[in-house]
Write a protein that binds this DNA or RNA. Sequence first.
DNA 1: GATATTGAGGACTATTCTAGTACTATATGA
DNA 2: TCATATAGTACTAGAATAGTCCTCAATATC
Lengths: 149, 149
Amino acid sequence: MLKLSKLTDYTTVILSFMASNTAHIHSALEVAEATGIALPTVSKLLKLLVKAKFLRSVRGAKGGYNLAKRPEEITMADIINLMEGPIALTECSITQQGCGQASGCHIGGKWSLINRTVHNALESVSLADMIMPSAFPSEVLIPVKSLLR
Amino acid sequence: MLKLSKLTDYTTVILSFMASNTAHIHSALEVAEATGIALPTVSKLLKLLVKAKFLRSVRGAKGGYNLAKRPEEITMADIINLMEGPIALTECSITQQGCGQASGCHIGGKWSLINRTVHNALESVSLADMIMPSAFPSEVLIPVKSLLR
DNA sequence: GATATTGAGGACTATTCTAGTACTATATGA
DNA sequence: TCATATAGTACTAGAATAGTCCTCAATATC
């Protein structure tokens, strides 16, 4: 499976919870109970999200966390980028310098296109979209092939 | 990084090599030398690709492998599906039955859309596209957000 | 001002996954 | 019949991931 790490998955769940309830601040315990994720793990992720400026924290008794940005301003691409680094399906697509397989590999450019496509897909979905109850979308068409020539 | 396993990466390189030279059959050793991937690994992948019907094999002396399908008929989605299983960014998007986090997670439907978008992106690129020398594509636009409501 | 509550930060461990290797059996051309 | 090549399976080492724990710092409340 072309997969995200569990922690990335948890992070989207946590952020979605925060976004759906922006009124007051939530303690780590509260988030853990609401999401069903173990407290130490939640705590670890919340700290990470503060560092990344997605959340604000309030220390001390009655402290907790809340969103530092509007839900529309946080995209899936942002979240994945934070948790997993740059969105790229292959090693060689990250840096400009080719990979070790140089002699046998002539497909670098195509990967960069594919990566960009995936990135765009993820950037087009924000936290606000994630928490919106939705009718099932009809069809998604992507003109990638037409661009390959 | 939202990443593919190395083996998946190798597989695309190997298949691209086979596709760019469909005239005669290639031994595992030949493929290994052409791609720069270690022979045992190449051998393992070639066997896998035969089982998946992407390649045909000829046993015995002067044996080897060649493509069983036309390059246009093998898409990136096919390759990733073979190597990593169904294209899905999260566990819960694969099966219909919700995840263990049921109580806290209300975003399953959105993931399915995102997954479908990514899948479409990957399905639109075939082996034939991968081996074609290309001008750099200009822009890729995906109307995902407009479909979320 | 003392105490309880809650976040900050970092270290550590267990487990799982991945990649790579090795070995034996089978088929075929010369 | 021998050399060459694939088929199939099992195993191992290493790396990445997930998860936990402990100590320190800040703040509200009594």
